[in-house]
Design a protein around this nucleic acid. Structure first.
Lengths: 148, 148
DNA sequence: CTACGTGCAAAAAGTTTGCAATCGC
DNA sequence: GCGATTGCAAACTTTTTGCACGTAG
């Protein structure tokens, strides 16, 4: 990327502003607030360039199309939470390690990816439907028997 | 979806026979050995039905298209390890929980997905290249600063 | 014989590419 | 003005759907 264009600026601003991983489509919608004529092709091209230049990071969740987040967020250690209701993805800080997982002998683990699934605060509040799963913080899962 | 057809049998047999997660395309190619006229649409329809009936499991890794594996493998609680060298995916048993991860207030975690990345035993032995990452078991990552 | 399942082709959905017009420098 | 960048549309890829025909029960 060389030139500074309104489109590129709007796209970068959108990702920075949202502070969470955005899909190309979400980026398009967010950036159109500044540049209504923005096309999806331009979004893809810009995302690709920003990714290569390291300005943004790629967030790939199991079975989902890729999302992009600001370098600031991508730079440090964190994982993701995906809301089953609204489909949005959020960053979650911290990582207590993976003790308990039995990697076969001889295997060298170099990094890992953790994705949490559930309902975000907004959806819980908005559609006060079920009140089964409580545990607002961490260690949900494992031991209960849900399938991962 | 009740009848026993040559196509359905071939598809199920292919997945069972391979013993590893297969993409729809791989299933098609494998099953065509028995039913040459098999079409991709039938593969998708069968996979969908088999998935719903629980006969096979879905394996979705970050950034990769979905794969399907036999129920035997998919049935119990486990996560996945993907070798950066050979690209193969292995099951890893156990799950020590997620304590340490700070989910935002109000968020309800219901399940999670963990994918480990590194080098499998076979690749480590075969291509004795680097010997940096040791930790054959668990808790690799976190604290080092690698991006997830 | 009945209707479920298949195969083919068209339709969606998501991403990339070709090109002429536009706009930054 | 020159050439990088954009927007639109067409090309691709992957998965789903509409339909008429074949075939299991």
């Amino acid at each position: 990327m060389e030139r500074s264009t309104r489109q590129g600026t709007a796209i970068r601003a959108a990702i920075e502003r949202e502070g969470r991983p955005l899909s190309p489509q979400e980026v398009l919608e967010a950036a159109r607030g500044e540049v209504p004529s923005l096309g999806i092709a331009t979004v893809y091209r810009n995302l690709k360039d920003l990714l290569e230049s390291g300005e943004i990071g790629l967030v790939a969740l199991p079975g989902e199309s890729p999302r992009y987040e600001s370098r600031q967020a991508a730079g440090h250690h964190h994982h993701h939470f995906r809301c089953d209701r609204c489909g949005r993805v959020f960053d979650v800080q911290g990582c207590g390690g993976l003790s308990g997982i039995a990697v076969p002998p001889g295997f060298a683990v170099q990094r890992h990816e953790i994705t949490l699934y559930g309902v975000c605060a907004e959806c819980r509040a908005g559609q006060a439907a079920d009140a089964d799963e409580a545990a607002p913080s961490a260690d949900a899962g494992c031991g209960h028997g849900h399938r991962h």
